[in-house]
Simulated scan of single mutants.
Amino acid sequence: MNDNVNVVVERTEQLLGELDQLLEQREQIRVDTPKQQSESVIVNDVASTANTASTENTKSRSKNRVANQAALKLLMETYPKTFSRTGVRPLKIGIQEDLLADEKIAKNKIKRALASYVRTLSYYRSLQAGAARIDLAGEAAGEVSEQEAEHAKGKLKEINRQRRERDQQQRKEQAEKEKSDRLTNKLEQLVNLKGR
C-alpha cells in the first residue's frame, strides 16, 4: 500500500513539474509576443463589455417589470370589480378601448397593465369555454369561445414547457459548476501536496 502511495505522489510531482514547464513556456510566449498579449486584453475587454450589456439588459427588464406591476396595481385600484389578483376573470373583448375612453389612466399605463394582466397563468386558466367575460363595472359582457379556450390551453402548455426547459438548463449548469468546483478543489489539493 505504501508503494502505491509513493507511486501516486511521484506521478503527481511529475505532472506538477510538467505543468510548471508549460506555464513557464506560456509566460515566455507572452513576453515574446506583445501582439498576442494585446489581443488577449481586447478579448477580455469584449467579454467585460458583453457582461456589462447583459447586466444592463437585466436591469432594463427589471425596471420594465416594476413599471408593469405599478401600472397593474393602479388599474386594480381604479377598477377593483374588474381587475384582481385573486378572482381573475376573463375580460370583455375591447376593454382597452373602454379604459382609454374612461380617461382615468394614461394610455401607456393601460397598455402595460393589460399586457401584464392577460399574460398571467391565472388569466389563461380563467379562459374556460362559456365563461362570462366582464366589463369595467364587473358586469357580464360576452363569453369565452371554444377557440379562445383552446388558445389559452396552448399558451399554458407552452409556458409550462418553457419552465421545464429553463429548470432543466439551470440543473445542467449547476451540475457543470459543481463538477468544475470539484476539479478545482482536486487541483488545489495536488498543488498543496507538492508544497509539502
Results as ranks from 00 to 15, higher is better:
Q96V: 03
E165W: 01
K73A: 15
I159E: 00
L15H: 11
K111H: 07
A141R: 00
L183Y: 04
K59Q: 11
A50Q: 07
V41I: 10
L156E: 01
E39Y: 04
A140G: 08
N185S: 15
K177P: 03
K179I: 09
Q28A: 12
S116F: 13
E39F: 06
E77K: 12
A53L: 07
D167Y: 04
K186S: 15
D181F: 08
G17W: 01
D20G: 10
T82D: 03
R133Y: 03
I110M: 02
E165N: 11
K107T: 15
S54I: 14
R196I: 13
A71W: 02
K172H: 11
H151L: 09
R171S: 09
Q169V: 14
R164N: 03
G138N: 05
R85D: 11
I42P: 03
L91V: 02
Q14S: 14
R133I: 05
L114C: 07
K81V: 13
N185A: 12
R65Q: 14
Q28S: 12
K153N: 11
Q128M: 02
K172F: 07
K177M: 07
L127W: 00
R65E: 11
Q14Y: 04
A101Q: 09
E10H: 12
E139G: 15
R171W: 06
R161Y: 04
V88D: 01
A132P: 09
Q174T: 15
R26I: 10
S40A: 10
N51H: 13
V46F: 14
E150T: 15
L193H: 08
R133E: 02
R61Q: 07
D20L: 07
D32V: 14
S62F: 13
G130L: 03
K109C: 10
S84Y: 00
L190F: 09
S180H: 09
R30P: 06
L190S: 13
Q189G: 06
K73D: 15
E77G: 01
L75H: 05
N57E: 06
Y117I: 05
L193I: 13
A115W: 00
L100G: 09
Q169K: 15
I93R: 03
V66F: 08
I105M: 04
S116K: 09
V5P: 05
V191R: 11
R112F: 04
Q189Y: 05
D3W: 02
E139K: 15
L75Q: 02
N108S: 15
Q37F: 15
D45A: 05
T120K: 01
K194E: 00
E143G: 03
L190K: 09
V31M: 06
G94L: 00
V9K: 10
K63P: 00
I110N: 08
K186Y: 14
N192S: 14
N160D: 06
